[in-house]
Amino acid sequence: MTSNYQADHYVAPIDETPLLATDSVRTDQAPLSLWAEAWRKLRRRPLFIVSALLIVLLVVIALFPGLFTQVAPNDNCDLQFSDGAPTAGHPFGYTFQGCDVFSRVIHGTQASLSVGVLSVIFVLVIGVTLGALAGFFGGWLDAVIARLGDIFFALPLVLGALVITQLPFFKDNKSVWTVVMVIVLLAWPQMARITRGAVMEVRNADFVTAARSLGVSRMGSLLRHVLPNALAPIIVLATMELGVFIVAEATLSFLGIGLPGSVMSWGNDIAAAQPSLRTNPAVLLYPATALSITVLSFIMLGDALRDALDPKSRQR
């Protein structure tokens, strides 16, 4: 049995559909660059805002500790206050030697951040330079740098630092600079490897080929075109490694092979708090908490930058 019924077809008027708004293109604005698009995304991410505010606060504490405490960290130590409870003006209590814990945590920020920042700067200089040369030119230069990096990759950070710090120069000259030298010596291969991979992805791009055809030298092409477009993963790794280097300094100082005991740092304070661990665990808790918050801030900042700069990990 067949039916002669025909359904009516309804087509909505074009002005009642969202197609015009969806398909419209803004021609009065220039397209956003990678960095402008990343900044637009970062401004809307609570993870970035919180981590950036914490890092700014830590930098201010490191540069101007006098704004947060008027108590000298070592000059007012008194054994009668050994492992004392918090009092007015001393909110974190006292150490085993009768020193103010809050003042030591505030002043210890400078050394810990200094090691992290200086280590990242030198790792960037060495790792980015060697990685960019290896990735762009390849050949025997790439092979030599790769094998050299493999040698240092085979050394774990703590084990390698234990060996290096026993050398006469490092053993007799403990300071912030010697700790930075040890960390840089063991940490540059990872930065070089990331840089090498990023440069290799960009070096064969059309705009690089066009620059070479216009007479730009190979080194000029690397510096002006390749490297600026390979910075995204480098910046992300540098941000995360800053927190790792701060932990490395604390670990080395805790083991007694890092900063000398005369330098206030969170690692030295954690090591000095061991005798009071059972009677007054708060002495250990405060520098450890400051260390954890600092490292977490840089890790969160690195995660936010990775999501904003890496197209493969952006949230759709």
Rank of each mutant, 00 (worst) to 15 (best):
M1Q: 13
M1N: 12
Q6S: 10
Q6F: 13
Q6R: 13
D8T: 15
H9M: 15
P13L: 13
T17K: 06
L19T: 10
T22N: 06
T22Q: 08
T22W: 07
S24T: 10
V25M: 03
P31L: 01
L32Y: 11
W35M: 10
W35L: 10
A38K: 06
W39D: 10
R45F: 13
P46H: 11
P46E: 12
L47F: 07
F48I: 13
F48V: 13
V50G: 01
L53A: 02
I55H: 01
L57Y: 07
V60F: 09
L63P: 00
L67I: 14
Q70C: 03
Q70W: 09
V71T: 15
D75M: 09
C77H: 01
D78Y: 03
F81V: 05
S82Y: 10
A85F: 06
H90R: 10
P91S: 05
F96M: 10
R104S: 04
V105I: 05
T109Q: 09
V123T: 07
L124M: 15
L124G: 14
I126F: 01
T129K: 03
T129Y: 01
G138L: 06
R147D: 01
L148S: 14
L148Q: 08
G149L: 10
F153K: 12
L155R: 00
L162H: 06
L167K: 05
L167G: 10
F170M: 15
W177E: 07
T178F: 00
V180R: 11
V182T: 12
P189W: 03
I194P: 01
T195C: 05
G197K: 01
G197T: 02
V202E: 00
A205P: 11
F207Q: 00
A210F: 13
R212C: 07
G215F: 01
M219T: 12
M219G: 09
M219W: 12
S221R: 05
S221V: 03
A232S: 12
A232L: 04
A232G: 09
I234Y: 00
I234S: 02
I235C: 14
L237R: 02
E241G: 15
L242N: 15
F245R: 09
A250S: 15
G256H: 08
L259F: 01
G261S: 05
G261F: 02
M264E: 15
D269T: 09
I270Y: 04
A273K: 03
S276C: 05
A282D: 02
A282M: 06
L284D: 01
L291M: 13
T294Q: 10
L296A: 05
I299G: 11
I299F: 12
M300E: 08
L301W: 07
R306H: 02
R316L: 14
